[in-house]
């Protein structure tokens, strides 16, 4: 797995998050930077531990990405843009669901949520 391949996966997931957000609100750069840093680390960990199954997992992972965007939009509420706080709250929502899914599928609950 090259760094480039991880970058393509992060691009794909952030694009999916953008789909969930739509054009109603802008995203602060700080929120974007926090998401990319967080999920790049998670994806790298997942691929290192479990191998690269992104092709098979892509429909599910990008669906979660779109949900992340929708939750961020929800948490931004009346704010003019999606800020760091809204991004963090959205990630908490999504990762809780991913952890539950990981436990249900027999993966360790201690693993980063992105594995789910």
């Amino acid at each position: 797995m090259s760094a480039d391949q991880i970058d393509f996966i992060v691009n794909d997931c952030l694009l999916a998050a953008g789909q969930g957000i739509g054009t109603e609100k802008a995203v602060d750069f700080a929120a974007l930077a926090w998401w990319r840093d967080r999920y790049r680390r998670f994806f790298l960990h997942a691929i290192t531990v479990l191998g690269n199954s992104y092709e098979a997992d892509r429909p599910r992972v990008t669906a979660v990405g779109r949900y992340l965007g929708q939750r961020a939009l929800f948490h931004a509420a009346s704010s003019p843009s999606i800020d760091l706080r809204a991004a963090e709250l959205a990630s908490r929502d999504v990762e809780t669901g991913c952890r539950m899914n990981a436990v249900r599928e027999g993966l360790s609950p201690d693993m980063p949520a992105a594995i789910a």
């Binding site: 694009l15 953008g18 789909q19 739509g22 974007l32």
Partner: peptide, 22 residues
């Protein structure tokens, strides 16, 4: 980071109207 920022914005433009091939 800039490419990521732009990918997110492309996704915003697409919205939920279509998926994208990898």
């Amino acid at each position: 980071a800039i490419v990521d920022d732009c990918c997110l914005a492309v996704g915003q433009g697409v919205g939920l109207r279509a998926a994208l091939d990898f």
